[in-house]
Design a binder for these strands. Structure first.
Length: 594
RNA sequence: GGCUCUGUAGCUUAACUGGAUAGAGCACCGCACUACGGAUGCGGAGGUUCGGGGUUCGAAUCCCUGCAGAGUCACCA
């Protein structure tokens, strides 16, 4: 049994013994004791005063006395207003440290038997990945790791939007202005090459619109009638009709993009188990809609278009098939979801990591799936996150005002290299090891910076200023880990003789052990709340507490008994393990030296 | 206009989902340690938690209301 449950059980027993009453869990609030007070756990007794019919202080005093007498692990208690602070014995904490050290995968939950699919990234193939995708990728990947830590089997899915008018725009511009340029001939990364033509399309398209307007045509008409757009639309029709030449060009250019994406994903340290392509899935939704129509769940308008009626949910009706029978975004999402549950019959949950601009879309998607009779619709959820803005405002791909993902990684490598060459302990490291280290630190800074913020929050990202290496940052946590490994390297020891139970603990030692005790709970909460931020904050707290301990206590003090040195090393070792595990759940690696 | 989300120190943010004197980092000022790693630690200053009501032992958190920003309500994805 864990400490918290033990204390809760004893508190309940105390209430029964003292007041002859039962309490339910809601009334027993146990929290961590705030730093300014003595103790490690605090029972909030305000809710219990109804039972005790006494003042909060008297109630706390009575329960404290009873618990102290009846619980071996409790060393002392104190009462502040309605708060009963409990301090556990050194022997208890030392024993508990041993227990924690005994787990090879401390903090990880037992297998749950649940299979969960987590979709993230989901890029378009007409342009390179940018800062917005970076947040998506880091969030999705981290949540997948967290869910695994909670014992679930996770399928990481990427839905690639590889068809549509925007793809045709890049293709058309390349045909017109590309002169056969390829990634090989230009030396450009494939996704960047294609993105270049997407921007080029927009430039020429705007020119055409301006020309038409000069002839006295109004803006709205000009936008619709510009020859380039007409031609792109024609290209899309040909694509849908399986025109061999168009399909061939489409495949070629998409493959350039996929190569580019793979590089970016690898650089970011994220990966996928399943890829889905809209060019395959967009047809799947159509038959579903036809079935829904036949069953009378959906309805058809006079022009032949098919709709879902959502007035019962106080939402506007949603179009699912156009009058000409072609599908929309929602149609293919219906098909994709159904396909996934068919493909993985034991799927218990489907989570979509998508920006909050699509909150409404997913609300509607899940409603329609439910209307169509799929009872797993309740197992679908939208992991929504806020957009990333630049100081200059919102990013716009077409206008080229984006922070490119590859540029960002390169910039971080550079910053990490400068700082590390200046401050680091790098003697004897090969150039290859150094590059790996710089990447680790640069990415550590970026990932921590992005993941420590609650996903729901919109964030402003200043590329020059945002990513710092000091304070509440990834490198700070990484540094603490390197420092611990340095200790373990330099001080002779054997972990076997670190079994110690008769130490007198100093305050920073107690709080470190108590903090280690929190880890499994944090992992669990991060899992239910899909919240990497909880782990980032925990990792920072742990690293900070370790540094406080380190500054206060000289571990390899010749005055200290060997047993004490060994105990402190064992403590440091355990902190290092948990730091590594915790950062791992954020997708952040930690170095042994830096 | 309807619906949804957000608003916390100059900046970036936390608060165990209603608990103690709102906690950190950056920047600013001042200290510590001559080492087991200074990418550190300690202290100072900085807050009407957007404003106004309400609920209760207790509100950044819940309810009402106003203000500001964003998203969405597309036969774009």
């Amino acid at each position: 049994m864990n400490v918290e449950d033990l204390l809760l059980q004893q508190a309940a027993a105390a209430v029964t013994a003292l007041y002859d009453a039962q309490v339910d869990e809601k009334q027993l609030q146990l929290q961590k004791t705030r730093k300014e007070f003595e103790g490690e756990f605090t029972l909030v007794v305000f809710p219990l005063t109804r039972i005790s019919r006494q003042k909060p202080e008297e109630t706390a005093e009575a329960i404290g006395t009873w618990m102290l007498e009846n619980t071996a692990a409790i060393q002392a208690y104190n009462v502040v207003k309605g708060f009963l602070n409990l301090a556990l014995t050194d022997a208890f904490w030392l024993g508990h440290l041993q227990t924690m050290r005994g787990f090879s995968d401390y903090g990880m939950a037992q297998p749950s038997g649940r299979t969960v699919m987590l979709e993230y990234s989901s890029p378009n193939t007409n342009k390179p990945l940018h800062l917005g995708h970076v947040r998506n990728n880091l969030l999705g990947y981290s949540v997948s790791r967290i869910l695994e830590a909670n014992g679930h089997k996770v399928i990481k899915a990427n839905l690639i939007n590889d068809r549509g008018i925007h793809i045709c725009k890049s293709m058309l511009a390349w045909q017109r202005y590309g002169n056969g340029e390829t990634p090989e001939s230009s030396g450009l990364k494939g996704d960047h090459l294609v993105g270049k033509y997407y921007v080029l399309f927009d430039t020429h398209y705007k020119e055409e619109v301006a020309e038409l307007e000069a002839k006295g045509i109004d803006n709205e008409t000009a936008k619709k009638e510009a020859p380039l757009l007409k031609e792109a639309q024609e290209m899309l029709r040909k694509w849908e009709a399986n025109d061999p030449a168009i399909r061939s060009l489409w495949e070629t250019m998409n493959n350039w993009v996929y190569d580019g994406f793979e590089t970016t994903y690898r650089d970011l340290g994220v990966s996928f188990d399943q890829y889905y392509y809209e060019s395959n899935t967009y047809l799947l939704g159509k038959e579903t809609v036809e079935e829904g129509l036949a069953k009378g769940v959906l309805y058809q308008k006079e022009d032949g278009s098919v709709w879902a009626r959502l007035s019962d949910f106080k939402l506007d009706d949603k179009l699912l098939l156009r009058a000409d029978g072609t599908s929309v975004y929602m149609t293919q999402d219906l098909g994709t979801a159904i396909e996934r549950f068919r493909q993985f019959p034991d799927l218990k949950q489907l989570i979509y990591t998508v920006g909050d601009e699509q909150n409404h879309h997913f609300k509607v998607l899940f409603l329609i799936l439910g209307m169509l009779g799929y009872n797993w619709a309740k197992d679908c959820s939208h992991l929504s996150y806020g957009m990333v803005d630049l100081p200059s405002g919102r990013m716009k791909s077409r206008e080229g005002t984006v922070v490119d993902a590859d540029d960002l990684v390169a910039e971080l490598d550079e910053q990490a290299a400068v700082a590390t060459r200046e401050k680091g302990k790098l003697e004897g490291m090969s150039e290859e090891e150094l590059q790996k280290l710089f990447r680790m630190i640069g990415l550590g800074a970026l990932k921590f910076f992005i993941l420590k913020v609650d996903p729901q929050r919109r964030m402003t990202f200043n590329p020059e200023e945002s990513v710092s290496l000091n304070g509440n940052t990834g490198p700070f946590v990484q540094y603490s880990h390197a420092r611990i490994q340095s200790l373990l390297r330099k001080i002779p020891h054997s972990m076997e003789d670190a079994v110690v139970t008769d130490q007198t603990l100093l305050a920073p030692e107690r709080s470190l052990i108590a903090l280690l005790n929190d880890y499994p709970r944090i992992v669990k909460e991060a899992g239910t709340g899909y919240s990497p931020a909880l782990l980032a904050n925990y990792g920072y707290d742990l690293a900070k507490s370790f540094n406080q301990f380190y500054n206060e206590v000289k571990i390899n003090d010749p005055q200290s008994p060997a047993a004490q040195v060994h105990f402190r090393l064992a403590l440091a070792d355990m902190v290092g393990r948990v730091v590594k595990s915790c950062m791992g759940l954020l997708g952040i690696e930690v170095p042994d030296r830096m």
